[in-house]
Nucleic acid binder design. Structure first.
Lengths: 341, 341
DNA sequence: CGCTTGAATGATTGCGCAATCATCCGAGAA
DNA sequence: TTCTCGGATGATTGCGCAATCATTCAAGCG
C-alpha cells in the first residue's frame, strides 16, 4: 500500500484514528462512543461526537463488517419492482430494517431461477446478515448454497412443506380453492383463466382447476401469458379467449393488473361486467376498489408480510441461538367481493 | 481475534487462502485468476476455478472493498417504490449495473429531505462507487456532504442550473408549459389542478400556472394532496374541487394514478369524460392507454433514464479522469393525446 | 492503610483481500 | 554460451475497524 500509517490525509475520508486524535482519546474509544455509547462516560462521548462532527467522519462499514463479521446488510431477491405487487412488502420491510440500522441490498431476478442463482452468489459476497427470497422455488444449486451459508433467511409470499429456514406467506392453493368456492357459490359454472406464467400464479390456477374438477367442472379454458403483468397482457388474454369462444361467464385473473386489462378489453367490446362477463382479480392493489366496475379480488396484506419478515430477521439477529426456529407464518388472505362478479 | 492464522476452519466461509491451498498456488494468484483472469496462464486459471468450485468459495467483497477502495456498490435514493413512476428507471438501472458487476443499495426517503440526509449518511458508510439521487432538491447539509465525498453522482428525473455532478432528466417547467399550450389549443379555458405535494409535481403546477397567466387565465383552482399517489387521493381531489364548484372544464393531474382516481370519481358521478370534464395525467404508466376513456398524459421514458444513468456512472468508473464532466442529459418528454381531453 | 471492585480506557491483533514490489524462468538475441 | 526481456507467480503489507485482553484509577471496605 502507498501510505504509511495514519497521516492526516487531506485527500481521503477521515478515519477513526483522525477522530481519535481530534478528540484526544484512543481510536477504540471512538469506536465505542459510536457503537456502544453506554460504555463510555458522558464527557468522553460528547468530546468524541464533537470530533466526529468537526472531521465529517462517516464510519467505513466495509471495515466494520470485516472486523466484526456482521455486515448489517439484508439481501432481498424479488422478481421485479415494476408495477409490482411486492412493492408494498419491500417498502415496509426496508423501512423497518432501516430503523434498526440495517440496509437493503436489492436483487432483481426477472422471474428466472437461473438469474436468482447468479444474483445470489453476487449478493453472498457481501456476507448479508439476512436474506429474503420471493417464493419457494429455487434451483437445487441455490438451495444447497443457501443451506450452507447458515445465514438467516426468509421465504416470502408463499408457504411450503420444507422451507429453507423461515417462511412468511400464505397458501396459493387455499386461494385457488377459495376463489373456486366463491364463484361456484355465486352460480358461475363456465369459468376461464388469464394467468401470468409465474410459479405462484400457476399454483393458484392449478388448485382452482382441481377444486372445480371436484365439483364436476372439467373444462376451464386458460390463457397463460409471459411476465411481467401489464394491462395490455390482460387485454390480449381476454381477446384470445373470446376469439376461441372460451371466455365463459367469468374470467379469473392471476393479478389485478391483468384483471384491469380484461375490464378494459370488455369495455371496448361493449361487454357488460358482470352482466355478460364477470371478472376476478388477485392482490387488491390500491386501484382495484376504483376500477369500473370495482374489482372483486383477493386481498394480500403486503406491508404486513414485509413487517413480519423484518421482525423475524431482527429477532434472529438479536438472538442467534434461535437458529432454525420453525417460524412459518401464514398471513392469510381475504376474498373481497365487489361489483365485478 | 480468536483464530490463529488461516487454519481450515470447517465452520466459517472458505477464504482465498483455502482456495489457494487446494489449487496449489499462492493466494494472490487466486485473487488474480478471479479478478483479472487475463494475467494468469490458462492452466493455472483452470486449477483455481476448479478449487473455487470444490471449496464453494465466494469472495468476501467487504474485504475486497477495504483493500481496493472500490466497493462495486451504487446507492440509489428514491422517494418510494410503491406504485411508483420510478420503478422502471430503477429496474433498468439495476439490471445494467448488475451486468457490469455493480450492486444496488436502495434507500427510500419517503419524499422527506431530512430522511434523505440520514439515509445518505448511512449509505455513505458503504463507500459506494456511485450515488443516484431523485430530484435536485436536497438539504444544504446533504449537498455539502455529497460535494465533499467526490463520489460520482447522478441526479435524476429533473434538470437544474447547478447540478451536484451529473444530471439525467427533463424540464418540469417545460412540461407545465407544454400542457398549458396543449389545453389552450384545444380550447379549454377553465382549468383546475390535482397535484401531489412533491417538489417536481409542484414545479410543473407552477409553470402551468404561469403559462396560463401569460394567456390571461388567472384563476386556476388546485387541490394539493399528500404523497403517495393513490386512486383514492385522486377521487378525493376531484370531489373537493366539485364541492367548491371549481373543477372547470379540465383537471390536470400530477400523475396518472391521480388521474385514474379522478376518472373513477367522475364515472361514479355520471360525469362524462371528456364531454363534461376533461382529464390530463402525467407519466404514461402502462395503464394510461387502457383506462376508460384512455388517458391523455405526458410520457417519460423511465427505462431510458435508468439506462443513461448507468452508462454515465460506468463511464466515470472506467475513467475517473472524466471527473466533473458536464453531463447534463435532457431525455425530454412527449405529450400523448388520447380520448380523455 | 492496603485491599478489592468495577467502570473507563487503552494496546494489540487480525478480519480477507488487492496493491505493490520482488522473484523466477524460459525464449530469443548477441 | 551468456544476457536480456517479459510473462507468470509469489511475498509482504496495510485497508479501517472491532474483538480481546490489559491497564488505570477512584470508590468503598474492613
Amino acid at each position: 500500500m502507498s501510505r504509511k500509517a495514519s497521516s492526516p490525509r487531506p485527500g481521503g475520508n477521515p478515519t477513526l484514528i483522525d477522530v481519535a486524535r481530534v478528540a484526544g482519546v484512543s481510536p477504540i474509544t471512538v469506536s465505542r462512543a459510536l457503537g456502544r455509547p453506554e460504555v463510555v462516560s458522558d464527557a468522553t462521548r460528547r468530546r468524541v461526537l464533537e470530533a466526529v462532527r468537526a472531521t465529517g467522519y462517516v464510519p467505513n462499514l466495509a471495515a466494520g463488517s470485516l472486523a466484526s463479521s456482521r455486515s448489517r446488510l439484508v439481501a432481498i431477491l424479488l422478481p421485479t419492482i415494476a408495477n409490482s405487487i411486492f412493492a408494498d412488502t419491500v417498502q415496509s420491510l426496508t423501512e423497518r430494517l432501516a430503523g434498526a440500522g440495517y440496509q437493503t441490498l436489492l436483487g432483481l431476478t426477472g422471474y428466472l431461477p437461473e438469474q436468482e442463482e447468479a444474483l445470489l452468489e453476487a449478493l453472498l459476497g457481501r456476507r448479508p446478515d439476512g436474506i429474503v427470497l420471493t417464493g419457494t422455488q429455487h434451483t437445487e444449486a441455490s438451495r444447497e448454497r443457501l443451506r450452507r451459508t447458515g445465514i438467516p433467511q426468509v421465504e416470502a409470499w408463499d408457504l411450503c412443506a420444507r422451507p429453507l429456514d423461515m417462511l412468511v406467506g400464505f397458501s396459493h392453493e387455499a386461494v385457488g380453492r377459495a376463489v373456486a368456492d366463491y364463484l361456484l357459490g355465486k352460480g358461475y359454472r363456465r369459468i376461464s383463466v388469464v394467468s401470468l406464467d409465474d410459479p405462484r400464479g400457476l399454483r393458484r390456477y392449478h388448485s382452482l382447476l382441481q377444486a372445480l374438477a371436484e365439483q364436476g367442472i372439467g373444462e376451464v379454458a386458460a390463457e397463460i401469458l409471459p411476465a411481467p403483468a401489464t394491462l395490455a397482457e390482460g387485454r390480449e388474454g381476454l381477446r384470445h379467449l373470446l376469439e376461441r369462444g372460451q371466455a365463459g361467464e367469468v374470467v379469473v385473473c392471476s393479478s389485478d393488473t391483468l384483471a384491469q386489462g380484461v375490464l378494459a378489453e370488455a369495455a371496448s367490446r361493449q361487454i357488460a361486467v358482470p352482466g355478460q362477463l364477470a371478472v376476478m382479480g388477485f392482490g387488491d392493489l390500491s386501484s382495484a376498489a376504483h376500477t369500473h366496475p370495482p374489482l372483486s379480488t383477493v386481498r394480500i396484506d403486503g406491508p404486513r408480510i414485509g413487517q413480519s419478515i423484518a421482525e423475524a430477521l431482527l429477532a434472529r439477529f438479536a438472538e442467534p441461538g434461535l437458529a432454525r426456529n420453525p417460524l412459518r407464518m401464514d398471513v392469510g388472505f381475504e376474498l373481497i367481493e365487489r361489483a365485478s362478479t
